Each structure stands twice: as structure tokens, then as C-alpha cells.
Computed example of a mutant assay.
Amino acid sequence: MRIFSLVGLSALAAACTWVEPKPEAAHISVVALNQVQHCERLGETTAKGVNKVGIFVRKDEKVVTELAALAKDSAYGMGGNRLVRESELQEDGSMTFGIYRCP
């Protein structure tokens, strides 16, 4: 019975979203590279999250959403208002984003 509880809890945790952006970073959006052509590039950030909980692999879209939330916090700290994905989701649960300030 205890094993079933642990398996159920792990499955539930694998489905959850763990990261929420800070309220002041909520206005920052993730856009395509062609949408920042007239913007100032401020730098980049690499966000890393949890892509596996126990034996369960989390869905890529949930992990990417969390990584974008972490990247938004970094962008806010640098004065940016747009993010562009610069890498695919890596095996270690990381992704790189470019940070831009657009008018």
C-alpha cells in the first residue's frame, strides 16, 4: 500500500508546475527572433529546471514553461522586456534565452 502511495505522489508531482514568475516580470514575453530585430540585446540567461521526478519524465512543455518563468525573472533583473529561445530543451533540463529590451 505504501508503494502505491509513493508512486501516486510521484506521478502527481511530475504533472505539477513548480515555478511562477515574479509579479513584476509577468509583462515579459517570449517571442520569435524576428520580433526583436529593432530591439537592444542585453545578454542571455540559461535557466535550469527539473525534467524528471523520480522515475517519471515530465512533459517538455511544462518544463519549458517553468524555464521561461525563470528566464523572465532574469530578464526583469537586466531591464529586458522580451525573451527569445536560443536553444532547445537540453537533457539536463536547461534552456538558453536571449534577453532584449524593445520599445
Results as ranks from 00 to 15, higher is better:
1 M>Q: 09
1 M>P: 15
2 R>W: 13
2 R>V: 14
3 I>Y: 06
4 F>Y: 14
5 S>C: 09
5 S>Y: 13
8 G>M: 00
9 L>W: 10
9 L>N: 06
10 S>W: 14
13 A>H: 11
13 A>F: 14
13 A>S: 10
13 A>M: 14
14 A>W: 08
17 T>P: 05
18 W>H: 10
18 W>S: 12
19 V>S: 00
20 E>F: 01
20 E>C: 00
20 E>M: 04
20 E>I: 01
21 P>N: 01
23 P>K: 02
23 P>W: 00
25 A>D: 00
25 A>Y: 00
25 A>V: 00
25 A>P: 01
25 A>S: 10
26 A>Q: 12
27 H>A: 11
27 H>G: 04
28 I>T: 01
28 I>E: 02
29 S>K: 15
30 V>K: 07
30 V>R: 11
31 V>F: 08
31 V>R: 04
33 L>S: 09
35 Q>E: 15
36 V>H: 02
36 V>F: 02
37 Q>D: 14
38 H>S: 12
38 H>E: 08
38 H>I: 03
38 H>F: 13
40 E>S: 12
40 E>G: 05
41 R>N: 10
41 R>M: 08
42 L>M: 04
42 L>C: 04
43 G>T: 15
43 G>A: 10
44 E>T: 14
44 E>V: 11
47 A>L: 07
48 K>D: 12
48 K>W: 09
49 G>Q: 06
50 V>M: 14
51 N>E: 07
51 N>T: 10
52 K>C: 11
52 K>R: 15
53 V>T: 04
53 V>I: 14
53 V>M: 09
54 G>W: 08
54 G>I: 04
54 G>M: 05
55 I>K: 10
56 F>K: 00
56 F>W: 03
56 F>P: 02
56 F>T: 01
57 V>A: 13
58 R>E: 05
58 R>D: 06
59 K>T: 07
60 D>M: 04
60 D>H: 12
63 V>T: 05
64 V>K: 15
64 V>R: 13
65 T>N: 15
65 T>V: 15
68 A>G: 03
68 A>F: 09
69 A>L: 03
69 A>F: 03
69 A>W: 02
70 L>M: 08
71 A>T: 03
71 A>E: 05
72 K>D: 01
72 K>Y: 00
73 D>A: 08
74 S>Q: 14
74 S>P: 09
75 A>D: 01
75 A>H: 01
76 Y>M: 06
77 G>T: 13
77 G>Y: 08
78 M>C: 02
78 M>Q: 12
79 G>I: 13
80 G>E: 04
81 N>R: 07
82 R>F: 06
83 L>E: 08
84 V>Y: 03
85 R>T: 12
85 R>F: 05
87 S>L: 05
87 S>A: 07
89 L>K: 07
89 L>R: 04
91 E>T: 07
93 G>R: 11
94 S>V: 06
95 M>L: 06
97 F>A: 07
97 F>Y: 13
97 F>G: 10
97 F>H: 04
98 G>T: 10
98 G>S: 15
99 I>C: 00
99 I>M: 02
100 Y>H: 10
100 Y>R: 09
